[in-house]
Structure formats: structure tokens, C-alpha cells
Computed example of a mutant assay.
Amino acid sequence: MRRDRGGRIPAIALSGALGSGKTTLLDHLLRTGTGRIGVVINHFGDVNVDAFLVSGHVDAATSISGGCLCCLSNATELDRAVESLARPELDLDAIVVEASRLAEPRELARLIISSAVRRVRFGGLVEVVDVAAWDEIGSYDGPPVASDHLKVASLLVLNKVDRVDPDRVTLLEKVIHECVGEKPMLPA
């Protein structure tokens, strides 16, 4: 994903349950991707482990601590973080906003879409789905995350498919399709 014609940088929300693989996916993107990527890491604890994990690979990073982004009373803190990464001298191609495990994807997307930072635009929402955790639960009637999380996503990353029988992955794809219709899905 690159800047649009107006030179605005796409801000991509990365969401998923605790342990789904958000940070691993982000680290992989940073190590193997092309282009310059800035990262906003939102963590919900005293020690920002995610920032330590990606710090060696990221072109520019900032962190928001102490609570979930989507629970902020206003977008000022997120806007400040995104503004610091959108500075022209950083010459970033994209900004990834990694949400805490508690984030509501719809609210996170709304915060980015309504951002007062003119140099960025909403680049979509990636929801990481833990296929292995879904398979361990053993309930195949519904999706492993709230259907709203799936509906708002631009891309679903079906993570940990190597730990699950391929037939179960196909079943999950079918369950998701029945729940939210056609949605781009990427096995990882």
C-alpha cells in the first residue's frame, strides 16, 4: 500500500485477539516487506513487549500506553502519534496501527478515518484470526471472533493454519463466508 495521489500516507489498522499473531505478522512485514513503514503500537500494560519485538526492524515507531485506543475519549493521542510518523522527512510509505487485544476494530477504524491529520488516510483494517484457537475450541458453528470484527475488516489473515488440518481451515473459510459474505482471506 502506498501514498495516494495527494501524497497521503495510508494508516492501516491491525487488530486481533490476544495471541492471534498480530505482532508476529507485523514483525514479518517489517523484516520482509518493501517500503518504509511506521508503527503505532498500542499496549495495555506496564511493559510494552510489542515495541521491543519490532523496534529493530521498523523505520519509525511510536507507542500509546495505558489503555485501549478505541476507549479514548477523543482521538488526540492517536492523532499525535500518527502526526509524528507522517512527518515528510520520515518519507514513510505506510503507517500500521497495532491495536491492543481489547480494541474494537470498528472504533479503531473510525478513529483513523476521522483523524485530523491531513497527511494520512485510512488504508484499511487487517483482522488476524487465530485458526488454531478456533479449532481447539471445537465449535465450528460460528466464527472465532465477533462477526462485527470480521465485517469491518478489509482483509482477514487466517493465522496458524499450519497447526490445523486443512479441512478445518476450509471449514472456517466457509463459516466466515456465511457470516460476512465475500471477504479477502489470506492464510498464514
Rank of each mutant, 00 (worst) to 15 (best):
G16A: 08
A17H: 12
L18F: 13
S20W: 08
G21N: 02
K22T: 06
T23A: 04
L25W: 02
L25H: 04
L26D: 04
D27A: 13
H28C: 08
L30M: 09
T32N: 12
T34Y: 01
G35E: 11
V40Y: 02
V40R: 02
I41Y: 04
I41A: 01
I41V: 10
N42R: 02
G45K: 15
G45Y: 01
G45W: 00
V49T: 12
V49C: 03
A51H: 13
A51I: 01
F52H: 13
L53C: 09
V54K: 05
V54L: 01
S55T: 02
G56N: 06
H57G: 04
H57M: 03
H57P: 02
V58M: 05
V58F: 00
D59V: 01
A60R: 08
A61L: 15
T62N: 08
S63M: 11
S63T: 14
I64L: 13
C68V: 13
C68Q: 13
L69V: 09
C70S: 14
L72F: 09
V82C: 02
E83P: 06
S84P: 10
A86N: 03
R87V: 00
P88G: 00
E89I: 11
D91F: 02
L92K: 10
D93A: 06
D93H: 05
V96A: 08
V97D: 00
V97A: 06
E98Y: 03
A99R: 05
S100P: 01
R101C: 15
L102T: 11
A103E: 12
E104C: 12
E104I: 10
P105L: 07
P105E: 14
R106Q: 07
E107A: 15
L108F: 14
L108S: 12
A109Y: 07
S114F: 13
A116F: 06
A116C: 00
A116N: 11
R118F: 07
R118W: 14
F122R: 15
F122C: 07
F122Q: 14
G123Y: 06
G123S: 10
G123P: 14
L125R: 07
V126Y: 06
V126K: 07
E127P: 01
